[in-house]
Computed example of a mutant assay.
Amino acid sequence: MPRLNSTRLVRLVVVLIGLSAIGLIFKQSKNTLPHIEDLLQSTIQPKHGKNIFFVETNCSWHEHSKAFRLLNLTVRQACAVESAALHNPSFQVFVLFACSTYREAALPAPIKATLGYKNVQLRQLQLLEYVKDTPVEQWFQSGAIYNSSYIIIHMSDFLRLVTLYRYGGLYVDTDVVVLRSLEHVPPNFAALESDAFVANGVLSLAQTGIGHSIAESCLRDFQQNFNGSAWAQQGPLLVTRVMHRICNTTDLKSLVNNRADCQSFRVFDSKAFYAVNGDLWRNFFEPSELEPTLELTKSSYMVHLWNNSSKALYVSVGSKSPYDVYAKKHCPKVYATAGKYF
């Protein structure tokens, strides 16, 4: 048998660890904590289109126990979940963890706050099973995705598409605050992030018809154009490429609020979900920007906080910054658990 050089050996080990550790549940001994329920085995399954999905793909090892992370959400992630559940009571809100996740007897306060809503469901995914019977099953089994330099981001990009392909519904990033109901918005929509790009931070696809066709097209594009060294290649760039093909145009602004031009798929303008663009993310955290930001987002369905830029900036509870005001109103239970900082 030929010998593997060190680089190939390390890569093989990484792929094998990724597929087994993330995709499979470890056998439990008497001393292990229980896993949270697997989505595919759950008694509560996603409804036909009446679902909001969040995905958590940070599967880093727990520093002390050397086991996978315990069930947790940051306060801001929990705020996103609560705001979705609060404003959309007829939807099931699923938080999907892409790794074996353990549940302690005493739940962290943000998690406990979200579970105060009967429509919030926390589930883990067994990835090898989850991708079965999808267009990317064999590609995923090859381990190609683990060559990514941005595995947490690219796994999130991947799983939102697999989830919408399987169930239909609405995918939402965890760095948002939902401001009002989406229950009466017809399915199959996304929104411009700018004049040139359709974002994938909010994506609605029905389980049948054009929604399912778009989900399939996105998955095939993910496989065919996968580039693990390009941060946005599988995210907004992918959705934009698919929209160009499906809608037969590169003039994305012409599609805004015009379902007739894109097979009943709707493209919202940026004000619906991204009224404060990524360059102005600090405005969410400055008390002096409260009135202008509230005015700018008064007709928005949600606000996007641009976590990649804002995650290290903490907010004092009661600071009257825009984010503080949004959180107090739209995720009150989580806000009450935050302590001094949010």
Rank of each mutant, 00 (worst) to 15 (best):
L4N: 02
R8I: 00
V10P: 00
R11Q: 00
R11H: 00
V14S: 00
L16C: 01
G18P: 00
S20M: 14
A21I: 12
I22N: 11
I22F: 10
I25A: 15
I25R: 15
F26T: 13
F26C: 12
K27S: 12
Q28M: 13
Q28E: 15
S29P: 00
S29M: 12
S29G: 10
T32L: 12
T32E: 15
L33I: 06
I36Q: 08
S42Q: 07
Q45D: 09
I52E: 08
F54N: 07
E56W: 07
N58H: 09
C59V: 13
C59W: 12
S60Y: 12
F68P: 01
N72W: 11
N72E: 15
V81M: 07
V81Q: 06
E82F: 00
A84I: 04
H87Y: 06
N88L: 05
Q92E: 14
T101G: 02
E104A: 12
L107T: 04
I111N: 02
K112D: 13
K118L: 11
K118A: 14
N119W: 04
N119M: 06
V120D: 08
L128G: 09
Y130S: 04
K132I: 06
K132A: 10
K132S: 09
T134S: 10
V136R: 01
Q138I: 12
Q138K: 14
S142N: 06
I145D: 05
N147R: 01
I151V: 11
I151T: 10
I152A: 09
D157S: 07
D157C: 02
L161R: 05
V162C: 07
V162A: 11
R166M: 07
R166I: 03
Y167G: 00
L170W: 03
D175Y: 04
L182H: 10
E183M: 09
H184V: 05
V185C: 05
P186R: 15
P187D: 15
F189N: 07
F197H: 11
V198L: 10
N200V: 04
N200W: 07
V202M: 08
L203V: 03
L203C: 04
Q207C: 08
G209I: 06
G209E: 13
G211H: 03
I214M: 10
I214L: 09
I214E: 10
R220Q: 12
R220K: 12
Q223G: 03
N225I: 13
N225R: 14
W231H: 08
W231D: 05
A232K: 14
G235E: 12
G235P: 00
G235H: 06
P236V: 12
L238Q: 09
V239I: 13
V239H: 04
T240R: 03
R241W: 04
H244W: 13
T250L: 13
L252R: 03
L255V: 02
V256N: 08
V256F: 07
N257C: 06
S264T: 14
V267C: 02
S270P: 01
F273Q: 05
Y274S: 03
Y274G: 00
V276W: 07
D279V: 04
W281I: 02
F285M: 13
S288W: 10
P292E: 15
P292G: 10
L294W: 12
L296D: 11
S300I: 03
H304M: 05
W306D: 03
N307C: 06
L313H: 13
Y314S: 14
Y314P: 01
V317D: 10
S321L: 05
V325P: 00
A327V: 03
K328L: 09
C331W: 02
C331T: 07
V334I: 03
A336P: 01
A338E: 09
G339Q: 12
Y341K: 14
